[in-house]
Design a protein around this nucleic acid. Structure first.
Length: 471
RNA sequence: CGCGGGGUAGAGCAAUUGGCAGCUCGUCGGGCUCAUAACCCGAAGGUUGCCGGUUCGAGUCCGGCCCCCGCAACCA
């Protein structure tokens, strides 16, 4: 569900920008190396590559399920597309003499299959496995992150790399202020064979973050002969990441780019996590909800709506089936779906579907303008909940005016006025359709189709299938 | 006394520079019959975590206390 959330957010942002006339390159992909993958594959008794293939397939399916309009999908285990870029940036960093070999030592817990920090130990034992970790030394390449500390802080401070929201910016600046240590950039191949080979050193593979972050440019052709996309689309306008990835995107990645003399991303949008009943979704608690189940039952746009509207822009948000169904009924079935049906049904009943072009009431122009501005304003900060609230405002106004003007009575005395109102309402619905395109792409098209607008003839509105059946 | 965010109606959240404490859902009452028993209007529901201070006036500013969450570098 966490991935569904992130993809949907990114997709709404990409679609919104495209509709604003921008040439968007929306990249997604999977990060497949690292000791975690290696370990999981071992547990499952399969090759790491097979596990990576499995995961990549799931990601693609999820993308499809939710109508994610990505332009490219990159896999870090793709030796043809990703490796050359990752290795080239390594070489550039190495040429700057920002890499050096050093022994890394630490306490390694075989239970965790990871290094544990001394302050995580009680009585010298690992808390989780109740055993004494081994003291291990291995030789790593280190990246001179410390060299770039001041520059990074300045860039973030001055919003040359803008971190949204502000609180995350403070968090990372605070962290950086304590001083940045150099970081491991490789692991010995004999310890971890699953990774990208370090150029000119067969004994090492690249540390995951070094390799994974490079996906943003490798996907654009960096490291290949064809730099057209790279020249056109890099630097990225925005990286969309979870709060757990902040450090890597706000510090490591820009430092790598600085070292390699490449342009820096302009923005980093940090979102929260999906939780369930206030807790992290986990198999042991049993509060995992599968996005597939939801979309099969209620449709992709229903899930998209929930993820875009109910999960805050920058905080953690809750997903429960109960709340999902409440929102579905209130906003989608009773709200959007019903109002569309309500207006079209009147057009059918009173005007045999045909509503001729009329002059739009000033009041309605105003209402729609306010909503459109609200959407654009909200999307500047990637605030999809606020954007959707802005669109729903129009729906409320339509319902309100229908109740006030009582067309079912007016039709007996003043059929022309009913026609004029219907034109306003149908027109408002058409605008809702356009405004909804980035958020609920399928439903938006269905609405527009049902309205059957023609510049000359006006509306030939026809009721279609119920958009959101009540639960 | 590590740094940061937060505590507001049953639930989830909002309140420029201090200026009538609001929104959505839920609950209750009324209206309507065009619509997916949908929609509209109205009502109830608050000691704004606690104590003190500044002020004509504090959710907002100041001091103290309680509670929750995030961060505190090699899992990514």
């Amino acid at each position: 569900m966490g991935h569904a959330f992130q993809f949907t957010r990114a997709d709404a942002i990409a679609r919104h920008r495209r509709l604003a006339g921008n040439d968007v390159f929306f990249l997604t992909g999977t990060d497949e190396y690292g000791s975690k993958m290696f370990k999981t594959a071992k547990e499952k008794n399969i090759e790491p590559q097979a596990l990576a293939d499995e995961n990549a397939k799931k990601f693609r399916e999820l993308n499809e399920l939710l109508n994610i309009s990505f332009d490219d999908f990159i896999r870090t285990s793709d030796e043809k597309r990703h490796w050359p870029g990752a290795q080239l940036i390594w070489k550039k960093i190495n040429e700057k003499e920002d890499l050096y070999k050093k022994k890394y030592s630490g306490y390694y817990c075989s239970g965790c299959e990871a290094y544990v920090l001394e302050n995580e130990l009680t009585d010298g034992k690992c808390v989780y496995h109740n055993q004494k970790p081994e003291f291990v030394e291995e030789e790593n390449y280190f990246f001179k992150l410390s060299k770039y500390a001041d520059k990074l802080m300045e860039l973030i401070e001055k919003n040359e790399i803008e971190i949204i929201p502000e609180s995350r910016k403070k968090e990372i600046l605070n962290f950086a202020k304590q001083g940045l240590k150099d970081v491991s950039f490789s692991r010995p191949k004999n310890v971890l064979p699953w990774g990208i080979s370090v150029p000119n050193d067969e004994k090492h593979v690249m540390y995951v973050w070094c390799d994974a972050l490079a996906n943003y440019i490798s996907a654009l052709g960096y490291g290949s002969d064809d730099l057209e996309k790279f020249n056109k689309y890099w630097p990225a306008d925005v990286h969309i990441i979870g709060k757990d990835n902040l450090r890597f995107h706000a510090l490591y990645w820009p430092a790598m780019l600085l070292s390699a003399s490449l342009p820096l991303p302009k923005q980093i949008y940090v979102h929260g996590f999906i939780i369930s009943e206030g807790k992290k979704m986990s198999k042991t608690i049993g509060n995992i909800v599968d996005p597939k189940e939801i979309t099969e039952k209620y449709g992709a746009d229903a899930l998209r709506y929930y993820l875009l509207k109910e999960i805050p822009a920058t905080e953690d948000g809750d997903f429960t089936v109960k709340h999902f169904e409440e929102v579905y009924n209130a906003d989608l079935a009773n709200g959007l779906g019903n109002t569309v049906a309500r207006v079209i049904s009147m057009a059918e009943k009173y005007f045999k579907n045909e509503i001729a072009v009329a002059v739009i009431d000033k009041k309605w122009k105003e209402i729609i303008n306010v909503s459109r501005e609200c959407v654009d304003y909200a999307m500047k900060d990637y605030n999809t909940p606020q954007a959707l609230v802005g669109i729903w405002h129009i729906l409320r106004k339509i319902d309100e005016e229908i109740d006030r003007t009582k067309p079912w009575e007016m039709t007996k005395t003043d059929i022309n006025s009913v026609g004029a109102h219907l034109f306003d309402w149908l027109n408002a619905l058409r605008d809702i359709g356009y405004l909804l395109r980035p958020f609920l792409p399928e439903i938006a098209e269905k609405i527009i189709e049902q309205l059957g607008f023609d510049e000359k003839k006006g509306f030939g509105a026809k009721k279609g299938k119920i958009l959101f059946p009540r639960i």
